[in-house]
C-alpha cells in the first residue's frame, strides 16, 4: 500500500508545489521586486512583464533541459568511455559496434522498419479513411480500427503472438495452413520475413492514428475540386489519386514522419516477440541488451539512433519556424 500513499503524496506535493511556485513567484515579482506602487511604477511594470515569461517557463525549461537536452550531450560524453566509465576510449565503442554483426543486423532491420512501417500504416490509414468516409457505419469502423492505439506494445505483442502461435489449435495462421494441409510453421523464425510479421504489429497499431488524421484532412478538401472532376468525367480512382491525395500531401508527410519517429523509439515489440533472436533485432532493442551491462556501448547505440533521427528533426524544426 505504501506506493499508493507515496503516489498521493507526490500528487499533492507536486501539484501543490507547482501552484505555490507559480503563485508565489508572481507575487514576489509584483510586490517585492518590482512593486507597482512606487515612483517608478511604469518602469517596474515593464520590467515585471519582461521577467514574468521566464517565471512561467522556468519549470518546463528546467525539466526539458535536464531530461532531454542534457542527455544528448551526456550520452555522447558517456559513450566515449569504457564499460566502467573510468577509462576514456574515444570512439572505441563505436568502432566495436560497427565491427559487430549484431549491430549491423540491427541497423539493417531498423531501416527496414523505417521504410516499411510508416509506409504501410499511412497507406492503410489513407485507404481506410477514404473508404469509410461515405459509409453509414464508417465511424464505428474507424473506431474499431483506431482501438489498437490504446493497447500497450506489450499487450499488442501478446495478441499477435497468439495469432502467430505454432500450434494450429491456437494460432489462426497455422490453423489456416493446417486446413489447407500444410504443416505448421513458426513465422517468427522465417529468416528475413519474420521482420515483416513483427513490423505488422506496429502497422496494426499505427494505422488508426494515420486514418484519423488523414480522414480529417480528406474532409477538409474543398468540395468544388471534387465536383469539378466528377463533371469532367473522372472515375473514383482518378478522383482519389489525382485530386484528393495531392491536396493532402503535407498532412501525409506529417503522418509519415510522426510514425517514423515513433518507430525509432519502440523496443517493446521486438523485445516481447523474439527478444531479438532470429535476426529480428532493431537498434532500440539492441541497446537494451547493453543497458545495465555496458553503459558505454548502450549510450553509443543511443547516439546512433539520435544520428538517424537528426536530419528529420532539423527539417521538422525548420518547418515549425517557418510557421511561427
Amino acid at each position: 500500500m505504501s506506493p499508493i500513499i507515496q503516489g498521493i503524496l507526490t500528487i499533492i506535493i507536486g501539484v501543490g508545489g507547482c501552484i505555490t511556485y507559480f503563485y508565489a513567484s508572481n507575487w514576489v515579482l509584483d510586490h517585492l521586486i518590482f512593486p507597482a506602487r512606487t515612483d517608478d511604477r511604469g518602469r517596474n511594470i515593464n520590467r515585471a512583464t519582461m521577467v514574468r515569461p521566464w517565471l512561467f517557463l522556468f519549470p518546463a525549461i528546467f525539466a526539458l533541459g535536464l531530461y532531454l537536452v542534457y542527455p544528448v550531450v551526456g550520452s555522447f560524453y558517456r559513450s566515449l568511455f569504457n564499460r566502467s566509465g573510468e577509462e576514456f576510449i574515444g570512439l572505441g565503442n563505436y568502432y566495436y559496434l560497427f565491427a559487430e554483426d549484431g549491430f549491423r543486423v540491427a541497423v539493417f532491420n531498423n531501416f527496414l522498419w523505417i521504410l516499411f512501417v510508416p509506409a504501410a500504416a499511412t497507406f492503410f490509414g489513407l485507404i481506410i479513411a477514404e473508404l469509410t468516409d461515405k459509409l453509414s457505419w464508417g465511424n464505428l469502423a474507424k473506431s474499431l480500427i483506431f482501438m489498437p492505439m490504446a493497447i500497450s506494445f506489450v499487450g499488442a505483442s501478446l495478441i499477435w503472438k497468439f495469432v502467430y502461435a505454432n500450434d494450429p489449435d491456437i494460432g489462426i495462421i497455422n490453423a489456416v495452413r493446417d486446413s489447407m494441409g500444410l504443416s505448421p510453421i513458426d513465422v517468427l523464425q522465417i529468416p528475413f520475413w519474420n521482420n515483416f510479421f513483427i513490423m505488422f504489429i506496429m502497422v496494426w497499431m499505427q494505422t488508426g492514428f494515420a486514418m484519423v488524421i488523414l480522414s480529417a484532412a480528406l474532409r477538409g478538401i474543398p468540395e468544388e475540386t471534387v465536383e469539378a472532376s466528377i463533371l469532367d468525367g473522372a472515375n473514383p480512382f482518378q478522383i482519389f489519386f489525382r485530386i484528393k491525395v495531392p491536396q493532402i500531401r503535407s498532412t501525409i508527410i506529417v503522418v509519415w514522419t510522426t510514425i517514423t519517429f515513433l518507430t525509432l523509439k519502440i523496443f517493446d515489440i521486438v523485445y516481447t516477440m523474439t527478444g531479438g533472436n532470429f535476426d529480428t533485432e532493431i537498434l532500440p532493442s539492441y541497446m537494451m541488451d547493453y543497458m545495465f551491462r555496458d553503459d558505454g556501448r548502450a549510450t553509443a547505440v543511443a547516439f546512433v539512433i539520435m544520428l538517424i533521427v537528426l536530419p528529420v528533426m532539423i527539417w521538422n524544426i525548420r518547418q515549425a519556424q517557418r510557421e511561427a
Binding site: 537536452v69 551526456g74 550520452s75 533521427v309 521538422n316 524544426i317
Partner: peptide, 16 residues
C-alpha cells in the same frame, strides 16, 4: 520544443 519532440528516449536512459 518541436525539436525535443523527436529526441529518442533512449538517449536519456543512461545519463538520467
Amino acid at each position: 520544443v518541436v525539436g525535443l519532440l523527436v529526441v529518442p528516449l533512449q538517449l536519456a536512459l543512461v545519463p538520467m
